[in-house]
Each structure stands twice: as C-alpha cells, then as structure tokens.
Simulated scan of single mutants.
Amino acid sequence: MEDILRPLAVVGGALLVTVVIGWIADQVVRRIAERHPEAPLWGLLRRCRMPLRLVLCVALLRGGYPSAKLAEEHEDVIAQVLTLALIGACAWLAVRLATAVVEAGYARYAAGARDAARMRRVRTQVTLIRRVVTAAVAVVAVAAMLLTFPAMRTVGTSLLASAGLIGIVAGVAAQSTLGNLFAGLQIAFGDMVRIGDTVVVGGEWGTVEEITLTYLVVTTWDERRITMPVSYFTSRPFENWSRGNPRMTGTVFFHLDHTAPMDLMRERLHQVLKLSPEWDGRAWSLVVTDTTPSTIQVRALVTAKDADDVWTLRCVVREEMVSWLRREHPYALPRINTAPAPGLEEAPDRRQVPPTAEDIGPGPGTT
C-alpha cells in the first residue's frame, strides 16, 4: 500500500500546490491590475500563468521524485527528463516575463506619444528586441539542457579549446545569415524602415507588416505578401513614403483639347477637393504642363495625409473632373480626326496621266 500511496502523495501534492499557488498569484496580479489600470504591466503579467504553473509543478516533481521511490531502476532517466522539462519551463517563463516588460514599456510610451513616425520606430525596435531576447533565452536553454548530459560536458571542453577555428568556419558558412542578422539590427536602430511604413521595393507598393532578424514582410495593396531578406534594405535603394512624415503630394494628368476652359476647371477642382475628406487642405493647383499639335496636358496637384488617402483622392479627382467635362464641356475632350483622305475622284487634277506632245511643246532648236 505504501508503494502506491507515496507516489500518489508526491504527484497529488505537487499538483495541488501548483494549482493553489498559481490561483493565488493570478488573483493578486488581477487585483493589482484592476486598481492600477494605467499600468499595463500587471495585465500583461497574467500571460505568465501557464509557464509559472508548469515551473512550479515540474520543480516540485523534480524535488519530490526521489522520495516517491517509483520506478527506481529508471530513476536517473526520469530525473533527467524532469530536469530538461524544468529548464524548458523556466525559459518559457523568462520569455513571457521579458515580453510583458517590453510590451508594457511600449504601451506606456504609445499612450503619451503623438508622433506616428516615432511610434512606428519604437514599435519596430520593441519587436526586434523581443525577438533577440527570445533567441538568446532559447540558446541559453538549449545549452543548459545539453550540459546536463555528462558526455556533452566533455565535448563542450573540447569545443572551447577549438573555439577560434570553429568561429571562423561558422562565420564563413553562415555569412549570409549573419549578414541578415546584423542588417536586421541596423534597420531596427538605424531608423531606415519601420513596421507600418509605406515602401516601394522592386516596383511593388506596399506596407511593412513584419520585421524579423533575418527577413521582412511587405503587404501589397492587393493583399499579397512579399518576403525578402533584410539585407536588401541595407544594400539597395528603396522608396520609403512615410519616413519622418507620411504626408504625400499626388498628381492627376488630363489630355484635353486646346479649347479646354482652364479657369472653370480650376474652380471645379477646388470644389471637388473641398468635398473630399481625403484632402488635407495643404495645397492644390491646376496648370498646363505640355502642348502637342492636337492636345494639351493638364496637371492637377493634390495633397493628403498619407499614401492611402492620396491614392483615393487622385482617383476621385480624375473621375469627377472627367465626368464634369463630359457633361458640361464636351468640346474640351480630346478629338481625333478620322475623316478619310481625298481620293482621285475628289482631286482629278492630281491624276497621273501620261503627257501628250501638245503638253510637252516644241523642243529646243525648233521654230
């Protein structure tokens, strides 16, 4: 009976203590979060409930397993498994804690910030810092797990003796990966491109959706995702339409007849802009930029607060102005002469007929 009750007591006690302590910690954090809603950290700490309970349970089982005297012939194996599980649970808890602290700091900054460009910069840095911390914790956890094996300790001593050579070989083999890694850090802290920026890369227009240590994702206007290495942005030129200030200036071109009423078109353009919520009121103009023998080129200039609004405003101006010209001034639209060229019947004097002797007249030396 004792062989059954003792393992049950150890396992049941570990689960009971885990549930009780986890519930108490969750209630304490929840009450503090309710009393201090201005501090987002306490609400984010509630995400650590599962890893905290796992750490408590595995730690209690690891400490109480020898007294359970269960499967003594496999005691070393079970102890090793519990140790590995404890290291993994501690790493999970550390990542959740670091993420909560970083996101709480960003939330407090975003609550008082008014500069959208600076907020995007901080958001990008926070995202990459969180990924760096996660990667570092994972590497440390894996190394700690490997060092729990006696054989790996011996191998580790040998590796330290040849660390210089291995570092050179690894650097050459992972040159591309390391280049992307350092490029990601350069992008994060060099303020080259941020999450939410509107960029043009490879002829594609889109918004930066995600930045990692090795790659970057751009969402195009038609909801396609373009994934490219971050080293692309440190080695090639690209357009960033929202760096510093997202305001944009757009143009709309019209090809019209020379009789187009420019003064009336300016008045109509101003009316369209005043009725468009996308126009920010900064500037507008309508000028003739070029002429050809058959048409003139008219450019309308409009402004908006960002790339999305300037695109919408350009479409609105183009549609409204063309509809107004077609309805009120159809003569201003370009016209193409499609009349047929005159034929031989319409121009008989131009027919090629062989000349007669009378048409040629007397030759030289004759009387």
Rank of each mutant, 00 (worst) to 15 (best):
G43I: 04
V252F: 02
A117R: 10
R299V: 09
I87D: 04
P150Q: 15
A25E: 02
A98P: 00
G167W: 07
G281E: 09
G171C: 11
I211G: 00
L256C: 06
A135F: 12
V230I: 08
W42M: 09
V58D: 02
R121Q: 09
D309F: 03
A161S: 07
L5F: 15
I296K: 10
R123M: 03
L41P: 03
T251P: 06
G343T: 02
D306W: 01
I187K: 10
W42C: 04
P40E: 07
L86T: 03
R153A: 00
C57V: 11
R121G: 13
V122S: 03
L128A: 07
L8M: 13
T367S: 13
G361A: 00
G196N: 04
G22S: 12
V353G: 10
Q271S: 13
D197R: 04
R131S: 11
G363N: 05
P342A: 10
A144D: 01
R114K: 12
T198H: 05
T292M: 13
T292S: 15
T18P: 02
V20C: 15
R6M: 15
A117D: 15
W92H: 09
V139W: 11
D290N: 14
E34Q: 13
T289E: 14
A94H: 07
E210Q: 00
T251L: 14
M152L: 14
V172M: 04
E38I: 02
E320G: 02
T291I: 11
L165Y: 09
L93D: 04
R153D: 03
E358F: 09
R30I: 04
N337D: 15
D263W: 03
A283C: 01
M50E: 07
